[in-house]
Design a protein around this nucleic acid. Structure first.
Length: 334
DNA sequence: CAATCGTGGGG
DNA sequence: TCCCCAAGATT
């Protein structure tokens, strides 16, 4: 079973693999910096969303040394819109560790990679396998789905995770485990999809227990999710002389480290006026944020004042970019 | 261990 | 429209 599965999958991958900007062509040597950067960006994020960010980052910062030398604010602004901003904070910290303590070279094994900020169990295995040719058991959401079907694992996630790791270990080949991992992910993305898997095109179909039973659609079994609470908030658009007041959010927590409009408490006493609201859905709650707008008669010298004509370059996360669009409309209407 | 942490696309 | 989901890590 194990050998059959890896051979069938690698044969399929040799023909049908996706071409991706971070993926080395056959015969090319993979660049650990690009593999690492792509793996961080791809955490809980689709390939389509990552592409433009990967291109932007690699052209601005072609090496880990270049990234390590950048200002935090530049990197956070460049990450704006991609989400999960702890990844960007860890990205900088990791780049500086690699540049400063590892001579600019990423560690070539799982255990050392795992010690770096932002690199967990999955990412350490993926980098070790893909960038350094190490045998590693690489389990992401795609692999969980493929393996849960292949072996008809009825236990629900996340409890079944260790079981899925053990099963993935049994089909991971001794060599080419990087290609094997990427093949599993391409398979999960293109064929062994969450809703309606295209078993007719699947190289593993003859080996698949769920396929044999006709039950592929029920896997992976997942625990019931908690209901999503609703919350309300207020943001403030304070402008003066063509500039708007921004704040840098605290390093930890929601949208941590990002530029934003002031929230909760008004940044000044002023004649605040309602300018509508924005509904925004985060992973674990839905937010309705009202926008209050005002013109200031003075410019607090300690604040961050951003030229409104260039607000698109501020690097606001999506919620605040949408609120800023409302603020600009309010301004043009006034 | 369970909660926290974004966003956009697809069915 | 709503729900699901994605190359997870951290605390």
């Amino acid at each position: 079973m194990s050998v059959d599965a890896s051979i069938a999958l690698l044969s399929w991958y040799a023909v049908d693999k996706r071409q991706l900007p971070w993926r080395a062509e056959p015969g090319e040597t993979p660049d650990p910096y690009r593999i690492w950067l792509s793996e961080i960006m791809l955490q809980q994020t689709t390939v389509a969303a990552v592409r433009p960010y990967f291109d932007k980052f690699t052209s601005r910062w072609p090496s880990v040394e270049a990234l390590a030398a950048a200002e935090d604010s530049e990197i956070m602004a460049a990450w704006a819109g991609l989400g999960y901003y702890a990844r960007a904070r860890n990205l900088v910290a990791c780049a500086r560790r690699v540049a400063g303590e590892h001579g600019g070279r990423f560690p070539d094994n799982e255990a050392e990679l795992r010690k770096l900020p932002g690199i967990g169990r999955y990412t350490a295995a993926a980098i070790a396998a893909i960038a350094f040719g190490r045998r590693a058991v690489v389990v992401d959401a795609n692999v969980e789905r493929v393996v849960s079907r292949l072996f008809a694992v009825d236990a629900p996630l996340p409890g079944a995770r260790e079981r899925l790791y053990a099963l993935t270990e049994t089909i991971t080949p001794e060599t080419q485990s990087g290609d094997f991992a990427q093949a599993m992910m391409d398979l999960g993305s293109a064929i062994c999809t969450p809703r309606a898997p295209d078993c007719g095109r699947c190289p593993l179909a003859p080996l698949c227990a769920a396929r044999a039973a006709g039950t592929q659609a029920i896997y992976p079994v997942k625990a019931a999710k908690a209901p999503k609470p609703r919350r309300d908030g207020v943001a403030y658009w304070l402008e003066h002389d063509g500039h708007v007041r921004l704040v840098r959010r605290p390093a930890k927590g929601l949208l941590g480290g990002m530029l934003a409009l002031p929230t909760d408490d008004a940044p000044a006493e002023a004649a605040w006026r309602e300018a509508g609201s924005v509904d925004h859905v985060f992973t674990h709650f839905a937010l309705t944020m009202r926008l209050l707008c005002a013109e200031s008669d003075r410019r607090d010298p300690d604040g961050i004042w951003w030229p409104i004509a260039r607000i698109g370059e501020a690097g606001l996360p999506t919620l605040f970019a949408r609120l800023a669009a409302r603020g600009s409309e309010w301004r043009n209407a006034a």
